[in-house]
Simulated scan of single mutants.
Amino acid sequence: MDWRDLHVLATLCREGSLAGAARSLGVNHATISRRISALEDEVGERLVRRLARSTPLTEKGREIAAMALEMARQSQLIERLVHSSKGMITGTVRLTAPPAFISETLIPSLPDFRKRHPNLRLILSADSHIASLDKGDADIAVRLVEPTGQQNIVRRLGNISYALYATHEYALHPTNDWQFIGFDAALADTPQQAWLERYADGRTFSLLVSDFYSQRAAAEAGLGIALLPERIAETSEKLVRIDDRQPLPRSAWLVIHADLKKSSAVRAISDHLIRLFGADAGESGPGKLARRVAAVGRPK
């Protein structure tokens, strides 16, 4: 039985879809389907249900995938052992984190990281929702909600601060006419959205979107006032901070699956994340940025 076919089935089980498995393995859908079909011919029965919008595994498929996942884990341990004896850090680490952190902080830091660890592969999932480490969704997570479980390793990284931003022209509008840009229903229960609604005090929300980048674009277009992470807003040439009032910073937490605490690859990524947040410990955000408060005479 071809291990590569088993590896594809295990990846399909872990990722939950043909598209996810293809992305994870760096191949196309046709390759995934071909290897699954070859494995089914070898086994003599269906392992995957090919539905219009999903590809769930059959009971037999789940049983084989569970064993294949354990084989993959053992294979990774062998790989790490071999390379550690050569003084190299290798392997694949799956990291899930908020989109803004990945785009604004992590990715710009990766060229230097890759120079130190050229054989380490990183799979990034930019997701505002909480991924399950226990179900294999990720090896490491950066979360903005303090983890409550005891089965994983948790470390507080630092704070992410938020402030109110708009264009200078919009800030000149009478404050009673201000409109706001906030989160849609998917993230309506976040602490910063609750704070913004209290600040708005009944004034209109002109736009609701699901991510900070759309909020920044809307504020730059003059559609209203947005509560943005300082890290994102301060990169804009069009926005100014309009008020000294701001919500309490949100803590960022590093979560590592307990089974991977001795992995040199996971430790390398974790140490890098800790350095990113600790580089400017005196600033509330992950990077030290100049604060620009709009010096405007706002009519009441």
Rank of each mutant, 00 (worst) to 15 (best):
T11Q: 02
T204W: 10
T92G: 05
S251F: 12
D189M: 10
F277H: 01
Q74I: 10
L144P: 07
R216W: 06
L276N: 07
L207Y: 02
P56F: 09
G202T: 02
L276E: 05
E104D: 13
L254R: 03
P98Y: 00
K86R: 15
G182Q: 06
S132T: 06
A21N: 04
A68C: 02
L122E: 00
R14W: 07
P111H: 05
L122H: 04
T175W: 10
E230C: 07
I140T: 00
D243W: 04
L208M: 12
A97S: 09
D201I: 06
D137P: 01
R203Y: 02
I181H: 02
S103K: 05
I64T: 01
G287V: 14
S264M: 13
R121N: 13
G297R: 15
Q179K: 13
A131H: 14
H257Y: 11
H7Q: 15
Y170K: 06
A294D: 01
A265V: 08
S37W: 10
G87K: 09
L18Y: 13
L106H: 06
I181G: 01
H7D: 13
D112C: 05
I160R: 02
A217S: 15
L124P: 02
E59W: 08
I181Q: 01
D271R: 15
I36T: 06
F113K: 08
P249V: 01
P118E: 14
K261M: 11
A138E: 02
I160M: 14
H257S: 12
D184H: 01
V154P: 04
A233K: 06
H29Q: 14
R116K: 13
D201L: 08
R275Y: 14
R245V: 03
L289S: 11
E15C: 06
R250K: 13
A185Y: 10
P229H: 07
S128F: 12
N176G: 09
L95H: 04
V142I: 09
G44L: 06
V142K: 05
L122F: 03
L227S: 01
Q246V: 10
Q215S: 09
A19D: 13
T11L: 02
L239I: 03
A131V: 09
E63M: 15
L276Q: 08
K115H: 11
G91F: 03
D112N: 15
H168Y: 12
A72M: 08
D5G: 04
E42T: 09
R245F: 05
T148A: 12
F212V: 08
Q151L: 15
L228S: 00
